[in-house]
Design a protein around this nucleic acid. Structure first.
Lengths: 191, 191
DNA sequence: AAAATGACAAAATTTATAATTTGTCATTTT
DNA sequence: AAAATGACAAATTATAAATTTTGTCATTTT
C-alpha cells in the first residue's frame, strides 16, 4: 500500500482521537502506519503542517456542511436567518456530542491562525451571498452593504459559535440569549 | 496599625501587581504586611477566598465606573450607545494597559463563577435602566422589553467585552467589527 | 531515481527530587 | 480573651536529570 498524504492525515486523525492532541507524536503516527517517522517528513514540512492539514479537513467539512443549508427561496431574510441558526446549531451539536474532541480542535485552531482566518472569511462570504440575494428580493435593507451586514451578523453572534466560548454553552439560558440577540439583529435587517 | 480585611486585600493587590499572579503567595503578602501568614487565615477562609475578595473589588470598581457614564439626556438612544461603547472601551483599555494583570483577573473569574454572575446581572440591569428611560422618551422601540433589549445588546457585543476573547482584541480589524455590530444593533432599536 | 530508512543533534517533554506554599492548631503575646 | 505566632504535615510548585520527540540527511532499499 502506497503512503500518501491522505493516508497520513487519516491515521493522524485516528491517533489524535485515541491519544488526544498533546499526547500524539509524529513517531506515534509513524508507528501506527508501520513506517519510520522520517518518511512522514517527506510529505509534510513539519509537525505543525501535519496538524494544520488535519484541522483543514475538519474546517472544510463544516464549511461544506453549512453551504448545504437549504435556501428558503421564497423568503430572503429567512434564508439568512436559517444559515445563522444552522451555524450555531452545528457548533453546539458538535460540542455536546464530544466535548473533548471539540476542545482538541479548538486547541489546534489556536496554532493554525492562517487556516482559521481563511475558514472564517469563507463563512462570512457564504453569509454575504445569501444577504446580497435577500437584498435583491427586497427583504433586507440596503442601508448597509451585504458584506457589512454579514460581518455584523457573524460577529454579533460570536458568543454562540466562537469555540473559545464553548464552555458556556452548557448554560440553560444560552438558547434564550441567542433568541434575543437574533431577534434584535434581524429586526435591524428589515428594509 | 490594626490588621483589617481591607488592608490585607489592598496589600494583596499591591503584591499581585508587583510579582504577578502566579508568583504571589499568601506568605509573600504576609511578609509585606509584616505579619505571619497564619494571621491572614484568621481573616480569610483560604487563598481562594482572598483571591475572590480581590476580584470582587475589581468588579465593583468597574461597575461603579460604568454607572458613572454620562447620560446623554437629550438623546435616549445615544445614552444607551454611550454605555455600551464605554463598556467595551474600558475593557480594551484595561487589557492593553497591562495584559498580564488582565489575564490574571480573567483567570480569577473562572474560579469565582458566582461573583461574576452577580456582576454580569448588575451590568445588564444598568443597561436595562437606560433602555427603559429611552423607551419612555420614544427614542427606542417598545416592540421588545427593556430587559430583552439589554440582554440582546450585551450578549450581541460579547466578542468585544468577554475577557476570554481578549486575546483577539489585538487584531487591527476588531474596531471595525465592533462598529458594524453596533450599527446593526442600534438600527434594531429604532422605534 | 525515487522512496524509505535510521543515526544523529537540538528541542521539547516527562519523570524524579528539592524547595516552597498552604492550611491547621497548640502555644505565646498583647 | 482576642489576636498573632510559628511549628508542622500535606499539597503544590520549582528545579534538575533522564527520556522522548523533532527535524535533518547521508545511506540503504525498492
Amino acid at each position: 500500500m502506497i503512503l500518501t498524504r491522505e493516508r497520513i492525515i487519516e491515521t493522524t486523525i485516528e491517533v489524535l482521537r485515541k491519544y488526544g492532541p498533546q499526547k500524539t507524536s509524529v513517531t506515534d503516527v509513524a508507528k501506527v502506519l508501520g513506517v519510520s517517522h522520517g518518511t512522514i517528513y517527506r510529505h509534510f514540512e513539519n509537525k505543525a503542517a501535519l496538524k494544520e492539514a488535519v484541522l483543514g479537513i475538519w474546517l472544510k467539512e463544516h464549511a461544506r456542511n453549512l453551504e448545504r443549508t437549504p435556501f428558503d427561496a421564497s423568503a430572503g431574510r429567512a434564508g439568512v436567518e436559517g444559515w445563522i441558526k444552522r451555524l450555531v446549531m452545528l457548533k453546539h451539536d458538535l460540542y455536546h456530542a464530544d466535548p473533548e474532541l471539540f476542545d482538541m480542535y479548538t486547541e489546534l485552531t489556536a496554532e493554525a491562525a492562517e487556516a482559521v482566518e481563511d475558514h472564517l472569511a469563507e463563512l462570512v462570504t457564504q453569509l454575504e451571498t445569501r444577504i446580497a440575494l435577500a437584498q435583491r428580493t427586497g427583504s433586507v435593507t440596503t442601508a448597509m452593504s451585504a458584506r457589512e451586514i454579514a460581518e455584523g451578523l457573524f460577529y454579533g453572534t460570536a458568543r454562540f459559535h466562537h469555540p473559545t466560548l464553548s464552555f458556556e454553552w452548557r448554560s440553560d439560558t444560552i438558547h434564550d440569549q441567542f433568541e434575543v440577540v437574533t431577534q434584535l439583529l434581524f429586526r435591524a435587517l428589515e428594509p
